[in-house]
Structure formats: C-alpha cells, structure tokens
C-alpha cells in the first residue's frame, strides 16, 4: 500500500488530485446554485479548441486551453446575462464548435497523435510533469482564494441577482469573475479527470454533499471534502487496479452521491426527532384535560439539550401550524 506513494509521478498525481478535488466543487457549487450545472461541460468542450491550438502552435496546451476557456466562459456569461430566448442555441454553437474545432486543429498539427488528444479527453494524471503541477497549483490557489474568500458575495449574486445589484455589489464583475474561475478550473482538472468528465467533478460532489446539508457554507465544505476524498481514492484505485484515473474518480463520486442519498432520509428523520423546535410529530391541539407532558411527546429523547430556546420555538411552530 505504502509503495504507491514512493514514485515521484505518483506523488505528483496525488497532489494534482487534491488540488482538483478542492477547486472543482468549490466553483461548481455556484454553477449548481444558479442551475447552470452543465456550464462546466460546455467549457470543457471549448477547451478542446485550446488544446488543438496548443498542438498547432506547439505551445503548452494548458496555457492555450486557459486562454480559450476564459474567452468561451466570458461569451457564455454574456449570453446568459442578456437572457435572450436564443441563448441555448448560442451555447450549443459554442459547445459543438469548440469540440469540432479542437479535433480539426489537432489533425492539422504536425505532432498529430490521437493518443495525446485522448489524454486530454479522459485525463492522464500519471503523466503530470513538475511544470504542469506548478501551473495547476498556481491556478488552483487563485480559484480557491476567490471562491472561498468571496463566498458571501458570490452566494448573493447566484442566489438573487437582482437583490445583489440593489446591495451595490459589482454584480457584472462578480459574474465574469465566476465565469473565469470556472474556465480556469476546467483547465486545472483537465489533466486529472479529462475534459469530458471535468463537469462531473464540479457537480457530483456538490449534489452528494447537499443530500446531507442544510446551509450553503456546509454544502461547500462537504463538497470539497467529497471531492478530495474521491480524487485521492480514485487515483489510488486506478494505480492498484490499473484503471484510468478520471473515470475511476467520477465513479467513486457517484457512489458517494448514492450512499449519501440513501442515508439522507433516516438522518433527516433523526435530526427532526432530536430538535424540539419542530414540536411533536403528531398534532398538539391538546384537549383540555391533557397536560403539557403530552406536548413534549414520548419520542424526543435529546429534546432539551438539542436546542437553546425550546419555548419560543414551540409557540412559533404552533402558530405556523395554525396558518
């Protein structure tokens, strides 16, 4: 088990996996909140053109992909902000144009090799070079600083854009910033899970985490946790079982989603039972001769310890029932 941490390329692979496990969900949560879960997928398609340009001009494909993705994401954001009816058509053009352009450019370039394109489509974490890792690390640091540091601001913009504008926030700048962060994340994750599965790491950990959470902050933290754990486990598993890393990571994330969904319902029931603020599960329209012991109910074991103000909670919840 220990020997898989020995080779340099494995250490780099694990580091890259951790970086992607943090960045992808921390950006993805805002896209999911805005019901743009598939935007990452669109950027991934556009990134392919960047990779193709990198091949054609024999420069670093990651840098080219960053450039093209940023342009593509800004165009998508402008289309979204204008909110016109044909927005989805415009996005479709961008997605498929990006995909087709990438393949065409790669086939035109001299170092054409379908295998090298394949490594961007599906990821090849074991071939991450020290230079790649430094670039991935730098980009990831920026993404984390923005998405975690500006959580309240970005949350407000994604939750209710009109209200955010009335608070005086620079809404347009923040929207563009988020689009650029999504683009950067796609290129960061490109080497680890591949362009075709980038979006999965932005969306699936968030979807898994929100099965168990009630607040946005907790969802973001839990999604990052799911992302890191599945990325690490995925890289380890793919080394042990000789499987491609990207699909392994994504499959593990989907397993986490299934597991969390399965335990969500019993957990929520337990939380309701321990929280006295919701009142008893059955009606508390007590008949005159019934005392207050009927109102607390037989199935509230941790009642008084769980909440700070059970009294005011009870009056308000009974008011809520009356409404």
């Amino acid at each position: 088990m220990i020997e898989m941490f020995q080779p340099d390329f494995m250490q780099r692979a694990f580091l890259a996996a951790v970086l992607v496990g943090i960045t992808a969900p921390s950006v993805g949560i805002y896209l999911v909140q805005r019901r743009q879960a598939l935007m990452g997928d669109g950027i991934g398609h556009v990134a392919l053109t960047g990779v193709g340009l990198g091949f054609l001009f024999q420069t670093d494909p990651i840098w080219m992909a960053v450039l093209v993705c940023v342009v593509g994401a800004i165009v998508m954001e402008l289309v979204r902000a204008r909110g016109n009816q044909r927005g989805d058509i415009a996005l479709a053009m961008l997605f498929y144009g990006g995909m087709a352009g990438g393949k065409l450019l790669v086939s035109m370039s001299s170092q054409a090799g379908s295998s090298s394109l394949e490594s961007y489509l599906w990821g090849s974490i074991l071939t991450v070079s020290p230079g790649d890792l430094a670039l991935i690390g730098g980009l990831a640091a920026i993404v984390i600083a923005v998405t975690v540091g500006l959580r309240r601001q970005l949350f407000a913009v994604c939750q209710d854009e009109e209200f955010a504008r009335v608070t005086g926030l620079p809404v347009r700048v923040l929207n563009l910033l988020l689009a650029v962060m999504a683009a950067v994340t796609v290129t960061v994750a490109m080497r680890v899970v591949g362009l075709l599965l980038v979006s999965a790491l932005m969306v699936v950990p968030v979807a898994a985490a929100q099965q168990l959470t009630r607040s946005f902050a907790a969802t973001q933290a839990a999604a990052i946790g799911v992302g890191v754990v599945t990325a690490l486990l995925g890289v380890g598993t793919s080394y042990q079982a000789d499987l491609p890393s990207g699909p392994t990571i994504v499959f593990l994330a989907i397993l986490a989603f299934a597991l969390f969904s399965a335990i969500a319902a019993p957990l929520a029931k337990r939380r309701h039972r321990s929280a006295a603020e919701h009142g008893p599960a059955v009606c508390d329209v007590a008949l005159p001769h019934q005392g207050p012991d009927a109102a607390t109910g037989p199935d509230a074991p941790g009642g008084p310890a769980a909440t700070g103000a059970p009294l005011s909670g009870e009056t308000l919840s009974s008011r809520g029932l009356a409404q």
Binding site: R34, R35, R152, F155, Q159, G168, V206, S215, T219
Partner: peptide, 18 residues
C-alpha cells in the same frame, strides 16, 4: 429556489452586503 440548500440566516445575511 436555488440549486443548493441555503439557511434562513445565510439568505438574510446577504442583506448586510452594503
């Protein structure tokens, strides 16, 4: 509602952004 859960406190806190 948004695609991600949010608490009452989190939503009300956005009113403090000014």
């Amino acid at each position: 509602a948004g695609g991600v859960p949010a608490t009452v406190r989190e939503v009300v806190s956005t009113g403090r952004l000014p």
